[in-house]
Every structure is written in C-alpha cells, then in structure tokens.
C-alpha cells in the first residue's frame, strides 16, 4: 500500500495543501482511501475521470491529479453518465454528499441506479449540509439537531443504501471512516464492479453535525462510528428495534445485470451494421 508521502507525490496537487476542510473532517481520509483503492487496482490516473458535486465533498477533486469535472448541485451523476457514454473506456467516479445525492440529485441518483450504468457513486454522508452551515439533510436522523432543526429533526431520514438497492443498483456497500481499511476494500470492489456501484461512507462533521449534537470531538465521533457499526451478516439476525441507531456496514448487493453502456453499444453495432448494408 502507498504511504501518505508516496500517495501525495503520485496523485496529489501538493501545492494546494493543506486542504480546506475543517479540522477532523472525514473528507480527507475518504479521498485518500479512494486514491489507495485506485492505486491497488492498477488504474492509470489518466484513465480515471472524477465528477464532483457541490458541497464539502465536492472539494476532493481539487487536490487530486485526476481529470476532474465539477458539476452543478446534484448533477454529478448526470455529468458522469454523459462522460461514460461518450468514453466508455474511462473509469468514472462521482463523488457527492448526502444532500447532493439524496435531495438535490435524488432523481439522477435513482435513475442512474436503475439504468445500471458502469459508474461508481461515492457518497460521503455527514448527515447535514456542512458547507452552508449545518442545515438538516435527507439523512439527518430523526430527533438529531441541525441548524434548521434546533430542537431535533421531525423528519424520517433516507437510508441511502436501501434507496440504491430499491432503485436497482448492482453493487451497494456502506463503510465508515473508522473502518478505513474495509472502506478501501469496498471502494476497490465498487470500482472493479461492472455496473452501477454505490458506496455510502458514514463520515464525521465535527463542526456542524457534531457541535449541534453535543459531540464536537472528531475522535469521539470516530469512536461512535466504531460502537454503532454492525456488519451486514450480523444485522440479519437483529430485529428492527435492535438495529435502531446502528450503522450497518459491508456489502449489501453485488450482482451482474445488463449494463447500460454495453447494451447501448450493442444497439449501435446492430443498427450501424444494418445502415451500412
């Protein structure tokens, strides 16, 4: 595995460091896990295109030496779909936040999953809108506080992995920043998978989510991830009450289904040939 110094030299725009994220934010570690996964897969950095959404997570590409496009809010998957269709040989990774993917880009998300286009969607879930000041997002847990829910959210949150499964994604996994080695494995599997891969990472936002919920220490938030995590297999033996407040981590789905780009290419080949004749 790459040491941090090797990783920075090979994949980072070192003159842009230190990064802009708040002290203790999970984004930096998740970005590094992605790079280490790409390196272990042996993917040439010039054949990987990253699409970033809007929000704190949308800063990942600003530090990394990949081809990066910064899309509009919620539309990372729409840009990624266009890039993948035009250049199927590229590995395309879209990085979004929970609000970017689950709210503003909710429709792009479910339809990319339904189409089963060969992309990797990495969603960094910090449970609030961090960049704009800690407003509640579609993943803010019921009862948790945010700057727009000072006495606790009265909305039920999305489970983004279950949403991805319901929409037909063919690879779905969840990790946390605490379980960083597992996260690298999940990202490796997701990028290698042919079809729509969805990886949700439970991250920590000490400044907004943490402070509003009486836990501003990044280390304590990581310990909370450790204590709340339950593996997919262990979760199968637990009742819904026992799973309350738990984070189920691991691979939910990994299956093969017809993939959009290949099917589209087959269509072009078939009718292109007929037209030529």
């Amino acid at each position: 595995m790459l040491s941090t110094a090797q990783m920075l030299e090979k994949y980072y725009l070192v003159d842009k460091l230190p990064n802009i994220w708040c002290a203790g934010c999970g984004d930096g570690a998740i970005a590094a896990a992605l790079v280490r996964a790409v390196d272990e897969l042996g993917i040439d950095k010039n054949s990987l295109t990253q699409v970033n959404g809007i929000g704190c997570s949308g800063r990942v590409g600003a530090y990394q030496d990949f081809d990066v496009i910064k899309g509009t809010h919620g539309r990372a998957l729409a840009f990624a779909t266009g890039i993948k269709l035009f250049k199927p040989e590229l590995t395309v990774v879209a990085i979004m936040g929970d609000g970017d993917c689950g709210a503003i880009g909710g429709n792009h998300f479910i339809h990319a999953a339904r189409r089963n286009i060969d992309l990797t969607a990495l969603v960094i879930n910090n449970r609030i809108y961090g960049m704009t000041g800690g407003q509640s997002s579609p993943t803010t847990p019921f009862g948790d506080r945010a700057s727009t829910a000072l006495t606790g959210s009265v909305e039920r949150p999305f489970d983004l992995c279950q949403l991805a499964i319901g929409a037909g994604a063919t690879y779905v996994a969840r990790g946390t920043v605490y379980h960083i080695k597992q996260l690298q494995r999940l990202l490796k599997n997701a990028i290698a998978h042919k079809g729509f891969s969805f990886v949700e990472v439970v991250s920590q936002c000490p400044i907004y989510y943490g402070r509003y919920n009486d836990e501003a220490s990044p280390a304590a938030m990581l310990r909370w991830q450790k204590e709340s995590a339950v593996s997919v297999t262990a979760a199968q033996g637990l009742s819904p009450e026992e799973l309350q407040g738990k984070i189920v981590i691991g691979e939910f789905v990994a299956k093969d289904e017809p993939e959009f780009v290949s099917e589209y290419q087959a269509l072009i080949d078939r009718y292109g040939q007929e037209a030529a004749e």
């Binding site: 040491s3 941090t4 460091l17 990064n19 994220w21 984004d27 570690a29 590094a32 080695k181 990581l222």
Partner: peptide
C-alpha cells in the same frame, strides 16, 4: 498503520 490512513490532512506518513 491506522494513523496515516485516518489523518484527514495527510500530515502523517509511515515510511
């Protein structure tokens, strides 16, 4: 090896 993987600011490297 966890410190260098967890450090969000790339301030730790294990050579």
């Amino acid at each position: 090896g966890l410190c260098e993987l967890w450090c969000p600011d790339y301030a730790i490297s294990l050579e």
